[in-house]
Design a protein around this nucleic acid. Sequence first.
DNA 1: TAATGTTATTCAGATAATCTGAACATATGA
DNA 2: TCATATGTTCAGATTATCTGAATAACATTA
Lengths: 300, 300
Amino acid sequence: MRLTIDSLIVLDSIDRHGSFASAAEALHRVPSAITYSVQKLEEDLDILIFDRSGHRAQLTEAGRELLKEGRRLLQAADELVARTKRVASGYEVELRIAVDSLIPIDRLFPLVDQFYRHSCGTRLKLLTEVYGGMWDALVTQRADLAIGAPGEGPPGGGYSTRPLGLVQWAFMVARDHPLASAPEPIPPEVIMPYRSIAAADSSRSLPPRTSGLLSGQDVLTVPDMQSKIACQRAGLGVGYLPLHLTRQDVIDGKLVIKQVVEVRNGTPLFLAWSTQHRGEAMAWLLNRLDEANWRENLLA
Amino acid sequence: MRLTIDSLIVLDSIDRHGSFASAAEALHRVPSAITYSVQKLEEDLDILIFDRSGHRAQLTEAGRELLKEGRRLLQAADELVARTKRVASGYEVELRIAVDSLIPIDRLFPLVDQFYRHSCGTRLKLLTEVYGGMWDALVTQRADLAIGAPGEGPPGGGYSTRPLGLVQWAFMVARDHPLASAPEPIPPEVIMPYRSIAAADSSRSLPPRTSGLLSGQDVLTVPDMQSKIACQRAGLGVGYLPLHLTRQDVIDGKLVIKQVVEVRNGTPLFLAWSTQHRGEAMAWLLNRLDEANWRENLLA
DNA sequence: TAATGTTATTCAGATAATCTGAACATATGA
DNA sequence: TCATATGTTCAGATTATCTGAATAACATTA
């Protein structure tokens, strides 16, 4: 097998320019060099690539297949060189970003779009984590960047952080839930008999974190924050919900904010990334996320 | 960009054999030829591929990326040559087979498996059609081969056929359907008030075919024969069903065969393929399907 | 510690691949 | 009929890649 990239370039040029002669001109060679390349390839592969029964050479069916798939190979070769240059020049091949489920992933789409538009070639992989799973993903290196990691990170360091914003919580119930008409502020013993809805912490190696649950209370655990909101809207249980994600439900009356004795403090969210990570793509993203409008939009 | 397939072969060999010297031996070259190739590639791409600070050269991170993705490129190049040779030698690149929904597609899996084992490289694409859609797929060239095309083909010819088998039908209802206790043979006017279940003819260009429906009768149309059987088993409607696919349901009593005044004749099924189609893969398949045991298994 | 083996490189020169330039055969268009 | 275009052949030039020998540096073994 003696296929060469150069011979595929020659075939491509013949097809693109319409003849051996014009392909030669385009490639800054003489026509007999084109003839030589094609004949050499036919000999090496033992395949007839051009039908020369007419005045102008025509690709055979095998030649058309070689051209069609050969163009893919040329493209793959260009991409290979580009990727290798990126690695050599400091750009990451792939960047994995964990996004807390408190942040609807579509809030990131404009940033992702702009990232791809600046064409550095790095691939992004988004993954959604819940609560402590954010830190878990970072320290176990399932993610390179965590957007929305809550509270303090685990001991042992190895990562850098930057504040992203503060999530405000309110205790909410469905409009037709029994607690909707309870006198305020509602004490814990009045809440206790009702099922709580919890979003499952997605930690794998770190111990899971919980928040806002009463000891001994019945709990329904759902996969993420969106599911928790949907469950509470459906009246399946009660609990604290983030204000920024439930504003419209509250306005619509689908969810009712109740004052409670045990108020839940706001949760600080952070950008977090591994200290040892070095790469141009990460630097680009951190620069962008440093801009106030990007940060504000994530928690609007 | 002067990446060459040969230089990727050299990199692959260095990694596989552990050193420049043993790569040289494996490639029947002298060690300095290996050094020359690597240095030429580094110069052409302007990338450091090997770290030579130690006694033994080590791939850089960019070099590892080039090696990893370069192996994919080598594999793609081999495949390209193989595909081109197949086209040149008469094998099809891809063969599209339409299978009537009267034939459970898994009945074809042993044949498909044996086809791939004989390693001609042709890719198969299976698509399921219903009734007249089989002929439609053939004459509109969405399929190269039709397995189980029913009845007579459309006028205009252009295809060859070979008998495959005969499908026997029986009128069936769910065990708890009102018609299950109707006196036999049931005349049409007794059937009329009950919904019929029809599998949608998947023709796109040819006019759709229907069979076994009474004029003015309510009809529920479902995508394919399996769905029709499932619907009738659920008591959603009535109609003729193929005996070879419902044998176990009848034994289990889930479906009840009722004698009717208007008996439905058996439907002959055919293998059909385009007359102008020429290819070794098609020939292989037609040879196999000519064997009685393959044909019998499709309609057992 | 010294001898030996291995790795990778350098460099002069040989070999092979690819090219150029000129001439030619054939087909097409004015 | 003549001019132009296409693709091929072939001798010779140029470039790419190789070999063989020598060398430097490191690792292993006695």
